[in-house]
Design a protein around this nucleic acid. Structure first.
Length: 238
DNA sequence: AAGCGAGACAACCGCAACAGA
DNA sequence: ATCTGTTGCGGTTGTCTCGCT
C-alpha cells in the first residue's frame, strides 16, 4: 500500500487556473493569510483545488512580489554562475534573484539559457557524463589526494555532459590538470567518478563574471581551488 | 484557412525533509 | 524513537501560442 494522496483527486479541479480562481485564492490569502496550512486552505477559501496546487499558484504567480517579464543579462549571469557552482538547486538560485521563482528559473534554464550556452560553445551539447567536486578544505599546495574516501564531505558540482577528450585536455597556456581515478569512494557509495586538481592558481583573482568568459572546463579547475566561491553562494542564500 | 511542429510556460507528481504528536 | 501530516523541491508532463508550410 502506497502513501495516501494529499487530496481527493476525484473531487479536485486540475489544469490551468481561471481568473476567478486566482481572485478567490488571492482574496482569501490577502484577508486571512495562508494560516500555515495549505492542505486545508482550499476548503476554507471555497476552492476545488489541491492544497499543493494552491501553494504553487500563489508562490509562482499570485504573490505580490513576483517579477514578471524577461530575464536580464545580469540575471542570466547570476543563474549561470550559480548553476555551475551548485547545480540544479533552483530554489537556491531563485533566492538570489528577487521576485523570481524556482519554477521560473528552472523553465528559463531548460528552455532558453541552456540552449544559449550550448550555441555559444560554453556547454557541450552531448557527450559522456562526468562528476566533479569542490574540496571544502583547499590545500595551498594542491596535490592529488590518493584516498578519496573523504569525498562525501565535498561539494558536488553539477553533472554535466562533456566531450571527454576536450574536457580533460587543457590548452597549452593553462595549468595542467591531474586526473585521479576513484575506486575507494564509489565502493563507499559516493557517486564520484573523477576529480581534478590544478597545480597552479593562476585564476584565483577572477570574479564569477570573469569565470563565465572562460572555457567551461577551466571553470571546474578554478572552482576546485576556490571553495570560497561556493561559500559565498550559500551564505547569501540563507 | 487548416494542419503541424517547436518553443515557452504552467502545472503536476513523487520523494525527501521536517515538525509535531 | 516512531509515526503521521505537511511542506518544499526538482524532474517531468501538459497545455497554449505562434510561426511555418
Amino acid at each position: 500500500m502506497g502513501r495516501a494522496p494529499c487530496c481527493d483527486k476525484a473531487n479536485v479541479k486540475r489544469g490551468p487556473w481561471s481568473p476567478e480562481e486566482d481572485a478567490i485564492l488571492k482574496g482569501y490569502i490577502d484577508t486571512h493569510g495562508t494560516g500555515g496550512n495549505w492542505i486545508s486552505l482550499p476548503q476554507k477559501a471555497g476552492l476545488r483545488r489541491c492544497g499543493k496546487s494552491c501553494r504553487l499558484r500563489w508562490l509562482n504567480y499570485l504573490r505580490p512580489d513576483i517579477k514578471l517579464g524577461g530575464f536580464t543579462e545580469e540575471e542570466d549571469s547570476i543563474i549561470c554562475s550559480l548553476y555551475f557552482s551548485i547545480g540544479s538547486r533552483w530554489s537556491v538560485i531563485a533566492s538570489n534573484l528577487p521576485g523570481r521563482t524556482d519554477n521560473d528559473v528552472k523553465n528559463y534554464w531548460n528552455t532558453r539559457l541552456k540552449k544559449k550556452l550550448v550555441a555559444g560553445g560554453r556547454i557541450p551539447a552531448t557527450g559522456t557524463t562526468t562528476t566533479a567536486y569542490i574540496n571544502p578544505n583547499p590545500n595551498p599546495n594542491p596535490t592529488p589526494d590518493p584516498d578519496l574516501s573523504t569525498a562525501s564531505t565535498w561539494t558536488h558540482l553539477p553533472h554535466q555532459s562533456f566531450s571527454e577528450p576536450n574536457f580533460l585536455g587543457p590548452g597549452s597556456s593553462l595549468p595542467s590538470l591531474i586526473e585521479v581515478s576513484d575506486s575507494s569512494s564509489s565502493a563507499a557509495g559516493v557517486n564520484t567518478e573523477l576529480s581534478w586538481w590544478t597545480t597552479e592558481e593562476s585564476y584565483s583573482g577572477l570574479s564569477i563574471d570573469d569565470l563565465l568568459d572562460l572555457d567551461f572546463r577551466i571553470m571546474y579547475e578554478i572552482l576546485s581551488n576556490r571553495s570560497f566561491s561556493f561559500d559565498q553562494v550559500i551564505s547569501s542564500s540563507i
